[in-house]
Computed example of a mutant assay.
Amino acid sequence: MSKKITDENGNTYVQKKPFYKRVWFIVLVVLSIVIGAVSTMGGGKDDSATKVSNSKTSSSTKSSSSSSSSKPKVSAEFTAALKSAETYASTMHMSKAAIYDQLTADAGNKFPEDAAQYAIDNVKADWNKNALETAKTYQNDMNMSTEAIRDQLTSEHGNKFTSEEADYAVQHLNE
């Protein structure tokens, strides 16, 4: 809400709220905090599965030293990017492109592009299922039409799913 101010000459000016008091800024800050909290606490159950997988891998690679040298070590930053990507895919049902953007965004995780690309290349997700879950949310919570859902799923400013993933979601929406 803006405030009208009249000076001594009778000129009327509109004084706007500072940006930090506007609704969009507050929503952005809250969303950033929630995403940060989700990305830092994601991985509790996944860690144990990863450790089991890693222990099996390390025991099998002990027998042949050539295979252990062919598998490069991954930096902590790449591992963190992958864990964040897994969280976004499994809890928020995001698309590959949306996850990549979130990982590299200045208002997001701020990972370097190579770490984000590593995460996208290695995250295990069913992208059709993610598109379907997102479509169900649009249908149930926002009462959107099928075409509006398809447009939102594939939009550059929306979810950034592929056309094939959006088609799958729309075809399976009422099952």
Rank of each mutant, 00 (worst) to 15 (best):
Met92Pro: 00
Ile5Asn: 01
Asn122Val: 10
Ser48Arg: 02
Glu175Asp: 08
Phe19Leu: 13
Asp46Ala: 13
Ala76Arg: 13
Lys136Ala: 04
Asp46His: 02
His157Cys: 01
Val34Ser: 05
Ala105Ile: 05
Thr79Glu: 08
Val38Leu: 15
Gln171Ala: 13
His93Gln: 06
Lys96Cys: 03
Phe111Lys: 07
Asp141Met: 06
Thr61Gln: 09
Arg150Trp: 06
Gln15His: 08
Lys124Glu: 09
Lys4Pro: 01
Gln171Asn: 14
Pro72Asn: 03
Val23Met: 14
Thr87Ile: 11
Val52Thr: 11
Arg22Met: 15
Ser55Glu: 12
Val38Glu: 05
Ser67Arg: 08
Pro112Glu: 13
Thr104Gln: 03
Thr79Gln: 10
Ile149His: 00
Ser59Thr: 09
Asp151Ser: 13
Lys16Pro: 00
Tyr100Phe: 14
Tyr118Gln: 01
Val29Asn: 09
Asn122Glu: 10
Ser64Asp: 13
Leu173Val: 00
Gly108Met: 04
Ala85Ile: 03
Ala135Leu: 06
Asp141Thr: 06
Val23Asp: 12
Ala115Tyr: 01
Gln139Phe: 12
Ala37Gly: 08
Ser60Tyr: 10
Val27Trp: 06
Ala85Ser: 09
Ser163Arg: 10
Ala80Val: 00
Thr12Ile: 14
Ala37Ile: 14
Glu86Ile: 02
Asp151Pro: 02
Val74Ala: 08
Ala81Gln: 01
Arg22Phe: 01
Tyr20Glu: 13
Ala116Asp: 01
Asn11Lys: 14
Asn130Asp: 05
Tyr13His: 07
Ser39Gln: 04
Arg22Trp: 01
Ser70Arg: 10
Asn143Asp: 12
Gly10Glu: 06
Met142Arg: 12
Trp127Met: 14
Val74Leu: 03
Thr146Lys: 15
Lys110Tyr: 04
Asn174Gln: 05
Thr12Pro: 02
Gln117Ile: 02
Ser60His: 07
Val14Glu: 14
Ser163Phe: 00
Val74His: 05
Gly44Thr: 11
Gly158Lys: 10
Lys110Thr: 13
Ser64Cys: 11
Ser63Trp: 02
Gln152His: 01
Asp126Ala: 12
Ala148Val: 03
Ile33Leu: 14
Asn174Ser: 11
Ser65Asn: 12
Pro18Arg: 06
Phe19His: 06
Gln152Thr: 12
Met142His: 14
Ala116Lys: 00
Leu153Met: 03
Ser53Phe: 11
Leu173Phe: 00
Val123Ser: 03
Met92Gly: 01
Gly43Pro: 08
Trp127Ala: 11
Tyr88Gln: 06
Val74Trp: 03
Glu133Lys: 15
Ser155Ala: 13
Lys124Phe: 03
Ala98Glu: 10
Trp24Glu: 15
Gln117His: 04
Ile149Gly: 04
Lys16Ser: 10
Asp46Gln: 12
Asp101Cys: 01
Val23Arg: 15
Asp121Asn: 15
Asn174Phe: 10
Glu147Leu: 06
Thr57Met: 12
Ala107Arg: 11
Glu86Gly: 06
Ala76Met: 04
Ser2Cys: 08
Ile99Leu: 09
Glu175Tyr: 02
Ala125Asn: 12
